Computed example of a mutant assay.
Amino acid sequence: MTSRVTLLSPATSPSLRRALFYDGDALDEAGAARAREAAGVLPAPARVLLSPSARCRGTAAALGLEGVAAAELAGLDVGRWRGRALEEVAAAEPEAMARWLADPGSAPHGGESVEGLCARVARWLEEERDGAGRTLAVVEPEVVRAAVAGALSAPAAAFWRLDVPPLTLTELSGRAGRWNVRLGRPLTPSDADRG
């Protein structure tokens, strides 16, 4: 039996547009409008799971999906960097930022390490692979990155090499102890036309 997991990155929010470490903000109007345009495009899943963030819940609502928040799919906890601009943190704490980007096991912000996030998401994927059916998960971009790294048995350092645009699908199909990955499919046909 094949398990199918579709990961959907959330629509845009102000923190995403301003390159801030996510601070819990909701979708901006443009992001909500794009998600509403795509309502009804997704194949019907057996279940819908959500990162417990406002922008993932808002994306699901705009798409007309009812889902269950799953703590294991929460975004990366960046501790005291939450809500701060990436360039601000890099200027104020250059050694800490460099260490965080170079060592997936470090967490100089006092939150969760990238390695910890990857391990958490890998455990969830293992449970999903042993199940059957189709799961749609509206999750933070870093959860998509961690899932792809885990599905490909890539080292946690690969996390930084993966870009996840808003409102894109990453599809995983699992069986026989492994996953196959289909990356970055646009949610709407009009997105595919933009290239």
Rank of each mutant, 00 (worst) to 15 (best):
T6N: 01
T6A: 04
A11C: 05
S13Y: 12
P14D: 09
Y22S: 01
A26G: 00
A26E: 06
A32N: 00
A33N: 08
R36E: 05
G40A: 14
P45I: 00
A46I: 10
A46T: 14
R47W: 07
L49N: 09
S51I: 12
P52M: 04
P52A: 01
A54F: 04
R55W: 13
R57P: 12
T59H: 12
E66C: 11
A69E: 11
A70W: 15
G75V: 06
R82E: 15
A85Q: 08
E88N: 10
R99T: 02
S106T: 05
P108E: 04
H109G: 07
G111T: 06
S113H: 00
V114W: 08
V114G: 02
A119P: 14
R120W: 08
R120V: 04
A122R: 14
R123H: 10
W124I: 06
L125K: 10
E126Y: 08
E128F: 14
A137M: 01
A137L: 00
P141S: 11
R145I: 01
G150K: 13
G150I: 11
S153Y: 14
S153T: 14
D163P: 02
P165I: 06
G177Q: 02
W179Q: 10
R182T: 10
L187V: 10
S190Q: 13
D191E: 10
A192M: 02
